[in-house]
């Protein structure tokens, strides 16, 4: 049984349909990369998985249990599924350590010293222990995004969603964030990434999904998608990426 099963999900905003019966399985310890043109539904799909958005038709299951439809405890669901956003979304009125311990303290009921120890351990792992008491606006974009990843990891999620986490970063800061993701992948973290970093997707993904008009147009191992794409649209998309010098 896959960790997450997405079964013919439909989502529209007014008359604009974003997901058109999209189906996708995410296995445990798998890194899935979602690629595709802007507006193809990558971000929406991620936000539907942790129920920041609601699908109108179809079904999403976690551990085989349906998490769409009424009556699902969203606060409990979101402990299982962490998300990191393109714009970091750190809490600007809290220091780094307060940002990352808020969830454990208030949601998991961890005690203060334990939460702090855990936070400091994770911060040291990403080389930011010395920034623990700084406020987010004193950190570079790359540092902020690393903190945001730690904030999600503090909840020990079963699945981590990464929504274009390097898109808002200056080019020279991208690698420090990707290093962490690489490290997490090596440790067996299950992750779904919406990304424009094709080189990185090729390197780290177990499965790459090319999304087009709200469905998975083509999926397969990176060697297939990037080396020998089958669909016409996948080929056309990759050609544009290569022409732009991004792969």
């Amino acid at each position: 049984m896959a960790l997450v099963e997405i079964d013919k999900a439909y989502k529209h905003y007014g008359s604009v349909s974003v997901l058109n019966g999209l189906s996708l399985n995410i296995e445990e310890h798998q890194v899935v990369c979602l690629i595709g043109p802007s507006g193809c539904g990558k971000s929406t799909l991620l936000r539907c998985i942790n129920r920041l958005e609601t699908i109108q038709k179809g079904e999403i299951r976690l551990h085989g249990d349906r998490i769409t439809g009424p009556g699902v405890d969203l606060d409990v669901l979101r402990r299982e599924i962490g998300i990191v956003f393109q714009g970091y979304n750190l809490f600007p009125h809290m220091s780094v350590i307060e940002n990352i311990t808020l969830g454990p303290l208030k949601v998991l009921g961890m005690d203060r010293s334990e939460a702090r120890d855990k936070g400091m351990a994770l911060l040291s792992r990403i080389g930011l222990a010395h920034k623990a008491d700084e406020f987010p606006d004193r950190l570079s974009g790359g540092q902020q995004q690393r903190v945001a990843i730690v904030r999600a990891l503090m909840m020990d999620p079963a699945l981590l969603l990464l929504d274009e986490i390097t898109s808002a970063l200056d080019p020279e800061l991208v690698s420090e964030v990707l290093d962490i993701v690489r490290d997490l992948a090596a440790k067996g973290m299950t992750m779904v990434l919406a990304t424009h970093e094709m080189g990185f997707a090729r390197e780290v993904a177990d499965k790459v999904c090319f999304l087009q008009e709200g469905v998975v147009y083509e999926e397969g191992p990176p060697s297939q998608i990037f080396g020998n794409p089958q669909g016409e649209r996948t080929k056309a998309f990759l050609k544009r990426i290569i022409d732009a010098g991004r792969l």
Binding site: R47, N50, L52, L74, D75, V76, R78, R79, G82, I83, F85, G87, N89, L90, F91, L102, G103, K106, V107, R151, A152, M155
Partner: peptide, 12 residues
Amino acid sequence: SQIAAARSLGLS
């Protein structure tokens, strides 16, 4: 986005 971030941590 601040609400999204907080709710994503499981805060009510």
